[in-house]
Design a protein around this nucleic acid. Structure first.
Lengths: 340, 340
DNA sequence: AGCCCCGGAGAGAGCGCTCTCTGCGGTGCC
DNA sequence: GGCACCGCAGAGAGCGCTCTCTCCGGGGCT
């Protein structure tokens, strides 16, 4: 056996120094209460003196757990982290994980062939479970992870999600859109359009449905929706189309703040005042909502909380893998500013 | 012993199925050449049929290696990843790491007390080494990691760095500034100012020095530098001060593209044309340089390459921990556009 | 014929933990 | 006094690998 180049102070040494058996030393380390306090103190002293650190590999091997979970995201997510909404959930997750003294292992999904490696990694008992970030371009992941040996929790509802199979944490996009649209109705707006995201994204579909349902419930006309791709320019173009189709539009629910910034420019260019002539509600309650002119009323999502919740759900599933999958939908709230 | 809930197919099973010993099966898995090809094939077939995955914990324990390295960054880095320069090195690093089938473990540094946990983690033989991202607010990390049991490579030169202690990968800020300034000199500019970053940042100091040295070498006057904080507004204010102090300024080296965008606004407001009246060179060669008007000549840094190189350097150090520390300074180049 | 060498492969001793099993001495009970 | 019980702790069997040591058989050499 080659000499491990590591610190080489093992539990054996600690036990010897403390004058107890390895088993007892292990008990102290793991907080098992049935140890005389004198022995426990001796062990703790030995640990401190020798600078002992448990070897995690040995521990994993012996107990079949790893105390680390994978965080799966695509290379593209990483590249776009700047603009991506999940930077905040990520922070929430890292905080939660730290509380449980668990490590987060970064797992990059990329091309489908890489993804086989990823799949193998998950099955290869490196981690106890995985958090998977779902974005528009990573919809293939739930299929890939359908029957892993470790539990998986998604951020975002997988398309074709099956409550008997998938555990996920998501935000109530439908409810958020309802909130936004009700706000416009309450402000007395009569012709309320929407700028929706691309319909191959679940969030876009849900937000669109929320908008429509509120209008229908109020017996109001449901204008044709304008679609864009969650960019500012896309939002601007969509706004122009919306105005062309509905010249007397007096309210618009825009499915993202970024698109709303584009929409605001077009409204201004068309000579319409916000909110005097047209009310606008955005989505995300991002920094853009505060810097827009006028500052946007926007739907706020509990993003950091999502990250934390993902971790909790995953840990529950790791603790009891046979429990039924869990879906958690977090409510949104409206942040009122000056655009309604 | 509790039953491991994992796949439970071990090397023992593979060996049995292939009709060889565990040792031989292990040889095949690890590419040891002294195995009859018939046996090797049998093993490979058994692996495929049984869906065998080596248990990494057992492997780590047996060979004292982990095939994973830590990536240390601060919570703040993570939060600011959007605006942070190291998103690109990060991508380079993930690519390099994938090539070596090594895993990246995300390690968050935060408050000093958390950092003790971090230190323990590094010493606790979880990872074979660590990559540490150095930013203005994480200058305490090199001190913390001074004598870890595993090799550490920094992104960016630690302040008070000691070539006998620290391994790092950095970009030649001094050389980049020289490049920029020489360009201005070559364009016939006679009064060349600079907008520098805050002097508690190494990059700012180095870029300032490069600018000054070129002017001195050419026997040109060295105007008072204007300092800003790497923001657009800061750049604008600094430009205003610079113009006040040196009304006949005809060239300016700005230590970041973002500050340069602010500077360009002030130059335009003062009625000066770029480059007819004043030439400007930026730094970073970021997207901002291309969208500025006029598009900025800017210093390009090989950021993705830095990330890759960090990994290579770290792996070398892991392979031979007794080799002297390595410092690698990557050269910059100038991307010429229309601002000179 | 006797020797060495060499390709190939099995035996088995760890790696550093965890956890069950077992056993000790002492207390409270019938 | 005998018995059950309980707090405490040691022995030791793994966890699933890696790697050295050893051995075997056969070819080439003197």
């Amino acid at each position: 056996m080659q000499t491990a180049r590591r610190g080489a102070v093992t539990l054996e040494h600690v036990a010897a120094a403390a004058g107890v058996s390895r088993a007892t030393a292990s008990r102290v380390l793991n907080g098992v209460p049935t140890v005389r306090s004198a022995s426990a103190d001796a062990v703790r002293r030995a640990v401190a003196e020798l600078g002992y650190r448990p070897n995690p590999a040995a521990r994993s091997l012996a107990r079949g757990r790893h105390d680390s979970i994978g965080l799966v995201l695509t290379e593209r997510d990483l590249a776009e982290l700047p603009h991506s909404f999940f930077a905040q959930p990520l922070r929430g997750a890292t905080a939660a994980v730290a509380r449980h003294s668990i490590q987060l292992v970064l797992l990059l999904a990329g091309q489908p062939d890489d993804d086989q490696a990823l799949r193998r990694y998950l099955d290869g008992s490196h981690v106890d479970g995985a958090l998977v970030i779902l974005e528009a371009h990573s919809t293939h992941l739930p299929g890939l992870f359908g029957d892993t040996t470790v539990p998986v929790v998604y951020l975002g509802r997988p398309v074709d999600s099956d409550p008997n199979v998938h555990s996920y944490v998501d935000v109530d996009n439908y409810g958020g859109a309802r909130l936004a649209t009700e706000e416009l109705v309450a402000a007395g707006r009569r012709t309320i359009g929407t700028i929706a995201g691309p319909l191959d994204m679940g969030v876009a579909v849900d937000r669109l449905a929320g908008w429509r349902d509120v209008l229908v419930e109020h017996g109001m006309p449901v204008p044709q929706a304008a679609y864009a791709d969650f960019t500012a320019d896309g939002g601007a173009n969509a706004m122009a189309r919306l105005l062309a189709a509905e010249p007397d539009l007096d309210g618009v629910f825009v499915a993202s703040d970024l698109m709303a910034t584009g929409a605001l420019k077009v409204l201004a260019a068309s000579g319409r005042r916000v909110p005097a002539d047209v009310s606008v509600v955005g989505y995300d309650d991002s920094i853009l909502a505060t810097t827009a002119s006028p500052p946007l009323t926007s739907v706020r999502q509990p993003l950091e909380e999502m990250g934390q919740l993902m971790v909790e759900v995953l840990l529950d599933r790791i603790a009891d893998p046979d429990a039924p999958p869990v879906q958690r939908i977090l409510p949104t709230q409206l942040t009122r500013r000056e655009s309604v």
